[in-house]
């Protein structure tokens, strides 16, 4: 038997649910997780566990911590996104604030702040009014602290860091806890 709590830890509300029509996963596990997530409205931080792999678009309206893997696009425009030490992100990220302790491969746009902590790694272009990079952090790309988030200077092309999966093919893969 697998422990459902280890797969997705919805310490909170339901807003980490992937968007898009197609959700491919173990039917029982996702529906159970979503139901559980819906029941826990009212808490503030969502935690995606390290065994979770998400491919597609991730939207949210509350703070989120990711310890697993996400490929595609993450939008948390009014909230704080934390990439934990085990988190591996290959995605375009839009958030109010981003804290990176794990790996991010993709362009990042934050309306308030981007923090890359010791051991954290970002490969991609950052657009944010405030950027803090700790010693011991890895960063390769560009930093633009001038423009408001979401705007792109004329003639500037974002670094093609990742190829986000189209939303229509959104799939949630619960990697580890598959009941067999």
């Amino acid at each position: 038997m697998w422990k459902r709590d280890e797969a997705v830890k919805p310490t909170t509300g339901p807003s980490i649910l992937p968007t898009g029509p197609a959700v491919q996963s173990q039917p029982s596990s996702t529906s159970a997780s979503s139901a559980e997530a819906r029941q826990q409205i009212g808490r503030d931080v969502v935690n995606i566990g390290k065994s979770v792999v998400i491919k597609g678009e991730l939207n949210g309206s509350e703070d989120l911590t990711i310890e697993g893997q996400v490929e595609g696009k993450i939008e948390l425009k009014d909230h704080v996104l934390t990439i934990g030490a085990n988190g591996k992100i290959k995605a375009h990220v839009f958030a109010k604030s981003l804290i990176v302790l794990g790996e991010v491969n993709g362009n990042v746009t934050a309306s308030e702040k981007v923090e890359i902590r010791d051991g954290g790694s970002v490969d991609g272009d950052i657009v944010s009014p405030r950027v803090a990079i700790a010693e011991g952090a890895h960063f390769r790309g560009s930093v633009d602290m001038q423009r408001k988030s979401g705007q792109q200077a004329p003639g500037q092309q974002p670094r093609p860091a990742t190829q986000p999966a189209p939303p229509a093919q959104t799939a949630v893969q619960i990697a580890q806890p598959v009941a067999r």
Binding site: R130, V131, A132, F139, R140, G141, S142, V143, D144, M145, Q146, A153
Partner: peptide, 13 residues
């Protein structure tokens, strides 16, 4: 921070 905030540069590392 210095080049981005004080000088207003776009920085490529």
């Amino acid at each position: 921070t210095f080049f981005g905030e004080e000088v207003g540069c776009k920085i490529l590392v």
